[in-house]
């Protein structure tokens, strides 16, 4: 039984053990730009949470706060257990690879910054590359790869430390739809294997329904959480889910919730 299956079993029994809690977080830029207002989110171990909303709703700001790249103006973000090196990783919208380093050296980066030697972690690097299907390209340079492959390297780098929480900020927004579908399938398959919690920022309703078990819908001006939807479909999800009536129904529900979120904004 994988780690994910274990946490899921407990989830079926009741709430999952907590990983991180965001409570009453505000973020104000300058003096008057409210990027995020009173955000609350309990992240359980093994959750796949999508933050879904129009641009300007503070979803990327929320992700940056959780990543520790900036700090809340008020409120707290707390890990249930103390956060260790390698517990947190990020995948950004751009692949963000170092052009001067080979694929393997890029994946090595999180370990290098922990002060570990390449030889000591070579197996982990190779395994992460296998997970994304790029083990043959470990000596290639990023410029030799297609957009989809670069993103896979970026994901391998995020997975290599076996993080407890992976933050993804619209990672597939710049890719074509075919590549994006494939990576959606692959990301779920990878998660089955290593069982980490994911917070995934997106503005695609379809992507969020296909991937996540919780969808947090956000609205803009000020950025805030409007409501949360659960996607009941059990994992592993396959291509069949994407064409099922159930999927269509869930997408409709999410779209309507999103419309409501936008409407709430119009009322202001």
């Amino acid at each position: 039984m994988t780690a994910l299956a274990a946490s899921r079993a407990s989830a079926d029994a009741g709430a999952r053990p907590p990983l991180l809690s965001v409570s009453h977080v505000d973020k104000v830029f300058g003096r008057d730009v409210v990027a995020l207002s009173d955000m609350n989110l309990e992240v359980g171990q093994g959750d796949f949470i999508s933050l879904l909303g129009p641009s300007g709703c503070g979803k990327s700001t929320a992700l940056r706060l959780i990543a520790g790249l900036s700090h809340p103006s008020s409120g707290t973000i707390r890990w249930a257990q103390e956060r260790k090196d390698g517990d947190l990783s990020v995948v950004l919208q751009e692949p963000t690879l170092m052009p001067w380093a080979t694929v393997a050296q890029n994946v090595f980066l999180p370990f290098r910054l922990q002060g570990r030697r390449y030889r000591a972690v070579r197996d982990e690097i190779l395994e992460a590359l296998k997970l994304v299907g790029l083990e043959k390209f470990q000596n290639a340079y990023p410029r030799e790869l297609s957009g989809g492959m670069k993103m896979r390297v970026s994901i391998a780098r995020a997975l290599v430390t076996r993080p407890r929480l992976m933050l993804m900020d619209e990672p597939f927004a710049a890719l074509d739809e075919i590549t994006r579908f494939k990576l959606n399938n692959d990301i779920l398959a990878m998660r089955e294997k290593i069982g980490c919690t994911v917070i995934f920022v997106t503005h695609s309703v379809f992507e969020s329904v296909f991937l996540s078990d919780r969808i947090v819908i956000m609205a803009a001006r000020p950025g805030r959480v409007i409501r949360e939807l659960a996607v009941a479909e059990p994992y592993p999800r396959s291509e069949a889910f994407r064409t099922s009536p159930d999927y269509a129904a869930q997408c409709r529900a999410a779209s309507e919730a999103l419309k409501e979120a936008m409407g709430a904004h119009d009322d202001h």
Binding site: A67, G68, L69, D85, L88, S89, V90, L92, E94, T96, M98, W100, A101, L109, P110, R112, L113, Q114
Partner: peptide
């Protein structure tokens, strides 16, 4: 140096020296 890479280095807790050596100098 790419500002996204800077963010990434920060997430992974890079020291000032590491940022210089592995990001800024290259």
């Amino acid at each position: 140096a790419d500002h996204n890479l800077r963010d990434l280095f920060n997430v992974y807790g890079a020291t000032r020296w590491q940022r210089l050596r592995f990001l800024q100098l290259p």
